[in-house]
Nucleic acid binder design. Structure first.
Lengths: 244, 244
DNA sequence: CCGAAACGAGAGCACCGCTCTTGCATTACT
DNA sequence: AGTAATGCAAGAGCGGTGCTCTCGTTTCGG
């Protein structure tokens, strides 16, 4: 399942000539299919995305699309990778390492929210209900880390500057956290409790946006942007960052 | 849309006789259809649930099902109401008003998690990605409140007992919260900031369970139950409850 | 230059939600 | 009690889906 069976193998022997005409055409068509799928995802959501309709939009037979994506799931996987990449880049580009940790934190949170409200179906694709029977390929788990790692870097910088002062509260038992999670950033080791606070912050960022996008805050919050900023500050303060 | 068009109107004039044979048969078959749909939801998720397959399971023509549920959306709505009711009852039944607030809080959180892991597809149905094109009918918004209201009651009781002491942190601006949210429980008025903390706790409960169920904690937490308990305590402490 | 590989199109299979018609059983009304 | 209205189950059918297979064509590499 999810075999990418028609795609070029990673370790195929490369010919002397860089690209044959066929390879160029293939790469172009693959990109066009992905673009059409993204277009349909944007306006109708993942549920309404069909291989046949993107084939129609591109004026080709539906069976021809299977030369480029072995299944609908594979097409969705490509869109998932795209979404993870974009939200990761949004976070990274919003971060200004020179600024104060609190400012950086708020800027990154806002950037992630902005991307999410502008790409709600893409957000749902990566943070909503998993597609039934769908198992995330290995490719996704790497790119999925870019956004939370941006948050971790801010905390690490604050920590190195002696500006990370988590307020008192229940202490997370170390055995609750995976060992490899404790070496999240090379050279900046967090305590298990700090790591737990980071995980919770990441979970909060995704969760509060989901609540907003999925309508759970409909009659609850009067000003979503204001409440989001408050949430960002609350979570940042819980991690030990200073604001204002 | 979602008109329940074949169902008996609420305010129809009731005949002298309580139930005709036809009405009994109708009620029974409706329940059977719902049960079959729930069965299929349990094992395959909402995406794979089809009216035709429940019809097959019940040995009837697919068109006959439409006499009882006007559409697939309507069948899903019934399942959503069922799920909201069950998670609300799980929370309510786990609450022991005589116990200390911290104990009550933890018990309710655990009950909600237990129900969710035992009914992951039902959880996804109410807290996951909304069905495309689907708008929650009015019926759902009332029953959806039972679970969060259980949390609010614990906070209200603690507050009345003078045992609600929220730790310092960013204060939520009052205009971020809807006015009707501030009179959440009659007679127990929370401050806007307390209300915000309650909203965040509710969001956390749903969000952390979603992370666990959807695999986002896969290589992150080593002991999900332990981390969940820590999360419950953290969120309870942030609300101002005392633990241990 | 020629065989192998890649490709596009079409037909086809099994499924889906939903509608409409038809014939029968039950109910309600006179 | 007879009749008209209603409820109901079944079947055919429409347009859609993912996916497979075949077949003729094009392109590439040895």
């Amino acid at each position: 399942m999810l075999s990418f069976r028609y795609t070029v193998p990673m370790n195929a022997p490369r010919p002397a000539r860089v690209k044959t005409a066929r390879e160029r055409a293939r790469a172009e068509l693959t990109a066009e299919i992905l673009a059409a799928a993204r277009r349909q995802l944007r306006e109708s959501g993942a549920g309404d995305l069909s291989l046949r309709s993107v084939a129609r939009e591109l004026g080709m037979a539906s069976s021809a699309v299977y030369r480029y994506f072995a299944s609908r799931d594979e097409l969705l996987t490509a869109l998932i990778v795209q979404a993870y990449t974009e939200i990761g880049e949004a976070a990274e580009h919003a971060d200004r390492p020179g600024n104060a940790p609190g400012e950086r934190w708020l800027a990154v949170w806002r950037a992630v929210r902005d991307w999410s409200v502008a790409n709600r179906h893409e957000y749902a694709l990566i943070f909503g209900t998993p597609i039934p029977g769908y198992i995330a390929p290995h490719i996704t788990i790497e790119v999925a880390g870019r956004m939370p790692l941006t948050l971790a870097r801010i905390a690490a910088d604050a920590r190195r500057a002696g500006a990370l002062a988590p307020p008192p509260g229940p202490v997370c038992p170390p055995e609750a956290i995976t060992p490899e999670m404790l070496v999240l950033l090379e050279g900046d080791e967090f305590t298990p409790d700090e790591t737990a606070r980071l995980i919770l912050a990441w979970n909060r960022l995704v969760g509060i946006i989901g609540y907003e996008l999925h309508g759970h805050l409909a009659n609850v919050t009067a000003d979503d942007a204001l409440f989001f900023d408050h949430t960002a500050r609350t979570e940042g303060a819980h991690l030990g960052l200073a604001f204002d």
